[in-house]
Amino acid sequence: MTPITEVEGRRLALSNLDKVLYPATGFTKGEVLHYYATVAEVLLPHLRERPVSFLRYPDGPDGQLFFTKNVPPGTPDWVATAEVRRSEGPARMVLVQDLPSLMWAANLVTEFHTHQWLAPTPDEADRLVFDLDPGPPATIVHCCEVALWLRERLAADGLVAYAKTSGSKGLHLLAAVRGSSSDQVSDYAKRLAVEAERAMPELVLHRMTRSLRPGKVFVDWSQNAGRKTTAAPYTLRARAEPTVSAPVTWAEVEGCGAPEGLAFQAGDVRARVSEFGDLLAPLFDAEGAGVLP
């Protein structure tokens, strides 16, 4: 029998709580739900008003993985949604606005992916993102070197960068922006990726060509496009172990000497939040948002 629980006045059916989703560690679906409940205070601000795409893995990372962008069948009528313009026409997507909708979505077993704009203002980007993806034998250690270069380059244009792990192999950089469209932010990010490649040609690549990737860090600027999404801060990832896209300090980036030095799992995050709070909270300060040159 599927247990029913009440979350802030909303009744939820939470299924298969004992199902092991991460066989390498024995991490269960119940633990997935518990993780999202315990980090809701820092996760929810990064989801609110952002149409969410779900990467679902109901049988664990070794099972079927599929993206859900449209509102899934059976979505409760109290879950907020927003109409989103796409090239193929308008569509409706989920907005995770509160703890009940977060737990409902987490019960689907999901990674949370968000756009770099808010539903009320889809024509204006409020985030700039770089996804630093290492091609083996390059690792996150090399991503950190590139991140430090990009931090200084962004600072030269008045933009303040913050870092988080991807929860996979690499690193994400984010900055708050205002007054620009997604196309303008994407063009700017591409220019900086090209500059980074010119400054560090043996390490950096700005093109997606996979044959050029081994031993280099691909600076993916394209996730700033209006249709693209990036793994949200604090989301679990569909990896062998329950890794998290975790915010990190610049001191941690500067001191990263081994790949495992910036690898965080669900069990690590609560203590980090207690110690640091939300390291990405400054992204919500409208006065601190930069204007592209």
Rank of each mutant, 00 (worst) to 15 (best):
M103S: 00
F112L: 09
E83D: 09
P72V: 06
E111T: 03
F67C: 01
T28S: 15
N107A: 03
L44E: 00
V96R: 08
V42W: 06
P90C: 07
A125M: 03
T110Y: 08
M103E: 01
L55S: 15
V84G: 07
Q97P: 08
P76R: 11
P90K: 09
Y35N: 03
E88D: 15
K19V: 03
W117E: 03
L95N: 09
V20L: 12
R50K: 14
S87A: 15
P58T: 09
P122Q: 06
L128C: 11
D126N: 15
G26I: 00
L132P: 08
S87F: 12
V84A: 10
L128F: 13
T121N: 12
A24V: 14
V94N: 08
E83T: 13
V96S: 12
F54L: 15
L128V: 12
V96G: 10
L118Q: 10
V32F: 04
L17W: 03
W117P: 00
V94Q: 07
V20I: 12
D98M: 08
M103N: 00
N16I: 04
D18A: 10
E41V: 01
Y36M: 02
L43T: 06
L128I: 12
W117R: 01
P73A: 15
A80H: 10
T25H: 00
Q97Y: 07
W78N: 05
P61T: 13
S53N: 12
L132R: 08
T114W: 04
H115G: 01
F130I: 11
A80K: 13
R85Y: 07
P45T: 05
T75Y: 00
P58R: 11
L65K: 13
V109W: 07
P23G: 02
F67E: 00
P73M: 12
R92D: 01
Y22F: 15
P58L: 08
L128M: 12
H115F: 08
T121S: 11
D62H: 15
A40F: 09
D62F: 15
L43R: 01
F27T: 14
V129A: 09
N16T: 11
F67S: 02
K29G: 00
M93E: 13
Q97W: 10
D62T: 15
S87N: 13
L118K: 11
E88S: 14
N70C: 00
S53I: 06
K69G: 05
E41R: 10
F66V: 06
Q97T: 11
L47R: 05
G63R: 04
L55Y: 14
D59C: 03
G60M: 05
W104G: 00
T75Q: 02
V39R: 00
R56L: 11
D18H: 04
E41G: 04
P51S: 05
D131T: 04
L55G: 12
R48T: 06
P45M: 04
L108C: 10
D98L: 09
T38F: 02
A82L: 14
L65F: 04
A125K: 01
S101K: 05
R85C: 13
L55N: 15
H115R: 08
Q97I: 10
F66D: 02
T110C: 15
T114Y: 06
H115T: 07
W78V: 07
E41Y: 00
V109H: 07
K69I: 02
E111Q: 06
A82R: 12
V129I: 14
T75M: 03
D133Y: 13
S87T: 12
L65P: 06
R85Q: 15
L21W: 08
S87G: 10
G30T: 07
A80L: 10
E124W: 11
V42S: 03
L33P: 08
E124A: 14
E83N: 05
